[in-house]
């Protein structure tokens, strides 16, 4: 369904994408997981024909995006990261406008708007101006606007950033429903839980490179039998983490937190605690986690997803 080959993009001296390649099958739920600035939005931007690549190619439904942009745009629906709606218009007027851009016949469009508003639980607010909506409600309409032309592929760029739990759960339900109906979904997030919950396959992206991809199971197995030791305390600095990395540990820092990866917890745990004391860290809490996407990401990049 989607083939991305050796995609490269630079902004001035900053290289956003270093030649990434991946394929997505029809009906697949593909997650693009990475921290802020990893290249997720640039990848989505190129696939949705908003950003021109420096080199490489993308084909969607066997159409090259450069040669057949209109056909490709008709095939995809895009949920951008920001809420792109006209605040002074009602939800219905917004949806009529955005759906109308895809040449959906008006009576069919109205029918789809009714269905979509019902799906997102916003039928009773349909005629209210969007400016009166909560952030979560706006996010729901933002997604609804991308579905009206019944796209084969849905790009969702961090669709749950900064919303309330009720809206998040509603969005999750809709996303799962769309997936179960066979829609191909490309989903970028830096929330590990979302990727683990929905994605058939996940591409881990960092510094403009796909550092690993596969099913959740395959990715976890890349982490071997590693476990994460999380030390919380005072006196944690990047300098102390660097010293610990020099001692051979994979370490990442968070807010008053150090995360170590260990293949041999029994022998490493005492070493870790000792090193922390030697570097003046006042430990408040120690917790152990089994391998998950977070630890896989840490072992692959030396960084935490939310860095």
């Amino acid at each position: 369904m989607i083939n991305v080959t050796d995609l490269r993009k630079s902004y001035g001296n900053h290289i956003a994408l270093h030649g990434i390649s991946f394929s997505i099958q029809q009906g697949e739920f593909y997650g693009l997981l990475g921290p802020n600035g990893a290249g997720k939005s640039t990848t989505i931007g190129i696939m949705s024909m908003l950003v021109s690549p420096d080199s490489g190619s993308v084909s969607i439904n066997n159409n090259d995006i450069i040669q057949h942009p209109v056909e490709c745009k008709q095939t995809i629906g895009v949920v951008p990261q920001e809420i792109a709606l006209y605040n002074e218009l009602s939800a219905i007027d917004n949806l009529l406008f955005w759906g109308g851009l895809y040449n959906v016949e008006k009576s069919l469009l109205k029918k789809r708007i009714d269905t979509t508003l019902h799906l997102f639980g916003l039928s009773d607010r349909a005629n209210d101006k969007v400016k009166t909506y909560s952030g979560g409600m706006k996010r729901r309409i933002n997604i609804a606007a991308a579905l009206l032309h019944n796209p084969k592929v849905l790009f969702m760029d961090e669709p749950t950033v900064g919303i309330d739990p009720q809206s998040r759960n509603l969005i999750f339900e809709v996303v799962q429903k769309l997936h179960s109906e066979g829609m191909t979904i490309v989903y970028t997030t830096h929330y590990m839980e979302e990727a683990e919950r929905f994605c058939d396959r996940i591409g881990i992206i960092d510094n403009g490179k796909i550092v690993a991809q596969g099913t959740l199971h395959e990715l976890k197995s890349m982490g071997g039998n590693q476990e994460a030791v999380i030390i919380s305390g005072n006196g944690i600095t990047e300098a102390t983490a660097a010293k610990m990395r020099a001692a051979g540990f994979i370490v990442s820092t968070g807010e008053n937190q150090l995360t170590f990866l260990s293949h041999n917890l029994k022998s490493d745990l005492s070493r870790i605690v000792l090193m922390c004391s030697e570097h003046g860290i006042d430990i408040n809490d120690i917790s152990i986690r089994h391998v998950n996407l977070e630890t896989v990401f840490l072992s692959l990049t030396g960084k935490q997803l939310r860095d």
Partner: peptide, 12 residues
């Protein structure tokens, strides 16, 4: 407000 970006993504 991001609507220009979204317009650019539409098949127009």
């Amino acid at each position: 407000e991001g609507t220009l970006k979204k317009l650019m993504m539409a098949p127009i």
